[in-house]
């Protein structure tokens, strides 16, 4: 192996490799990431406070940020807030997991079978356009005001998003990968596991993220409409209670909580997963530049 000719090739290659290695851009600093959204939130709060001080509307219609905060703190002191948040989050989380369990196989089957796709595809995209709140009345008639109603509405909202995301991901798998997979000996299930699903992962994760957003919205719609003592108290019921008692500060507070939970789950769970998947697939802008 120590032929001078060979050695020359090795060094030539090493030179080419080191000249051509891709350089990844440095990560953005935490400050650069956090500062702009914080400034935006502060601006919204300041505008709100300004309108409140200017007295454009009476206090009971437009309470100030401080009143909303106190009202939430009071409710939290009575334990109402925490149990509402916990009830809603656990319902939303469980409903989402069941939606994933249903939407994933559905997406694979519809994405891979032409016949089933022609039949079911339009229904799935249609369902995605239907606001899931529309399912609440029939679900209440059929199942009564029960947890079953709430989970039905969550599933009908989230399953189409998850399935459609996976279908889009499968559609974008380059045919070359499937060809390579077949040449490597991946057929049937092993082709699905080793080629198809990993290649479709970016679309699937986007679908999961949207599925969570739909699950959370559907849950709120269901909780606001379907309230009963037996059902337990969620954030939607907290909103409804605010409406019944004409308590605008509590209503604003509950909306703020709904937003915080929705955004929080997105930022803490889905955003990191999505970043990792995109980076591992070489799809982030940082790696391209």
């Amino acid at each position: 192996m120590a032929r001078p000719d060979n050695n020359g090739l090795a060094r030539l290659e090493a030179g080419l490799d080191s000249l051509a290695g891709a350089r990844s851009a440095p990560r953005r600093r935490l400050r650069q990431k956090l500062l702009p959204p914080l400034v935006a939130v502060a601006a919204v709060l300041a505008t709100w406070q300004g309108l409140y001080l200017a007295g454009v509307q009476p206090d009971w219609v437009l309470p100030g940020p401080a009143e909303v905060w106190h009202s939430l703190a009071d409710a939290a002191g009575r334990g109402e807030v925490w149990s509402s948040v916990w009830n809603s989050v656990s319902r939303g989380g469980l409903g989402f997991l069941v939606s994933v369990a249903v939407g994933t196989p559905l997406g694979i089957v519809v994405g891979r079978s032409r016949t089933i796709r022609t039949a079911v595809g339009p229904i799935l995209s249609g369902l995605q356009n239907l606001p899931s709140v529309a399912w609440v009345p029939p679900a209440v008639i059929f199942l009564g005001v029960t947890p079953g109603t709430i989970y039905t509405v969550i599933l009908l909202g989230a399953v189409p998003s998850i399935a459609n995301g996976l279908i889009a991901g499968l559609d974008q798998v380059p045919p070359l990968y499937l060809k390579v997979g077949r040449n490597l000996g991946a057929t049937g299930l092993s082709s699905v596991a080793h080629v198809l699903l990993p290649a479709a992962l970016p679309g699937y994760v986007a679908g999961l993220k949207q599925g969570w957003a739909f699950a959370w919205r559907s849950l709120m719609a269901a909780e606001i409409i379907a309230t009963s003592a037996s059902l337990g108290h969620g954030l939607g019921q907290l909103l409804k209670q605010a409406q019944d008692t004409n308590d605008m500060a509590l209503a604003f507070g509950a909306i703020a909580l709904v937003l915080v939970v929705g955004i929080g789950v997105n930022q803490l769970v889905f955003a990191p997963v999505e970043r990792r998947v995109l980076r591992s697939h070489g799809l982030t802008s940082a790696d391209r530049s």
Binding site: A20, G21, S24
Partner: peptide, 14 residues
């Protein structure tokens, strides 16, 4: 030396 790199981190020749 490149075994832990992903394809997008390698040059066309690599």
């Amino acid at each position: 030396h490149a075994q832990h790199k992903r394809p997008h981190e390698l040059s066309g020749g690599m």
